[in-house]
């Protein structure tokens, strides 16, 4: 029984990752230890892959049916996307974030070993579920980081020691986050076609996801052509994040909420 081995495997992975994260933290001052951190992350990830393959062989079907199995996939793919992003863009905090999130999903699985929360409504049982949620998880993380940068920029602007590097960092984060946001939206559309018969139904969550996408679209276009109006750009970025937050948490409180297929909280 492979789920029986889960506490053993997950402990090994989490311990490797925690030590790796410590090394990553040290590497901010002493660059040479960063290699140790990467080795530990990769080692943990290798253990993870072994576990997933063993589980798959044991079950004789893709382990994608229960919520616990879904979280296992989150924990598998988060470090992978984190590494690809890190290799390309060299943001260490982002690597730490993805490893941290993956560790969190392992911890949730460890604490709730399949005893409850294992009901998953039929519409959610789809191969699209994991990619759709994963890319949104990433997109929101990167866009949240971009708004923290925006707030720092607005504060610096107020103090009159604004540095254009701040905005360049925000730009890059928005581009990465927006790419993931687009993927999340489109994967959702492709999934909706398979599950509900239509790719776009103007469901309230879809409406707000579209608005979030448009908000960042305004920022990208504005930045592209008005590089020197920094304050306006920062304001647009902050407003776009407000729309994102409405999409994420706020939709459930709007008058339109009870017509949504995305509100799982109320039953």
């Amino acid at each position: 029984m492979t789920w029986m081995d889960f506490p053993l495997y997950s402990s090994i992975i989490v311990i490797l990752w925690i030590i790796g994260l410590l090394f990553l933290l040290i590497s901010y001052t002493k660059e040479f230890v960063s290699k140790v951190a990467y080795t530990l992350f990769v080692a943990g990830w290798a253990v993870m892959i072994v576990f997933v393959i063993k589980l798959w062989l044991e079950l004789g079907r893709p382990p994608m049916r229960t919520l616990g199995e879904t979280r296992l996939w989150y924990a598998t793919f988060l470090p992978l996307i984190g590494f690809v992003t890190y290799i390309r863009w060299k943001y260490k905090w982002f690597l730490a974030y993805s490893i941290g999130m993956a560790g969190m999903f392992l911890a949730i699985n460890y604490m709730n070993p399949e005893t409850y929360s294992k009901t998953l409504m039929p519409a959610l049982q789809s191969p699209w579920f994991i990619p759709h949620v994963l890319v949104y998880l990433f997109s929101y993380a990167v866009l949240a980081a971009s708004s923290i940068v925006a707030i720092k920029g607005l504060y610096d602007n107020f103090k009159e020691n604004f540095n254009i590097e701040t905005l360049k960092l925000a730009d890059n984060l928005v581009y990465i986050g927006f790419a993931f946001l687009t993927l999340g939206l489109l994967f959702g559309a492709l999934w909706a076609k398979e599950a509900w018969g239509h790719y776009w139904t103007w469901d309230p969550k879809e409406v707000w996801a579209f608005l979030t996408w448009m908000g960042y679209l305004i920022y990208i276009h504005y930045r592209h052509f008005h590089m020197h109006n920094t304050k306006q750009a920062l304001t647009i970025l902050a407003l776009a994040f407000v729309v994102l937050l409405v999409c994420w948490f706020g939709v459930n409180y709007l008058p339109v909420a009870n017509t949504s297929v995305h509100t799982y909280t109320q039953y």
Binding site: D171, N172, Y175, I176, F178, A179, L186, R223, M227
Partner: peptide
């Protein structure tokens, strides 16, 4: 989107 992720905001 993949292109955008990889290239970032090169122009700016």
């Amino acid at each position: 989107a993949f292109y955008m992720f990889w290239m970032g905001n090169k122009t700016t």
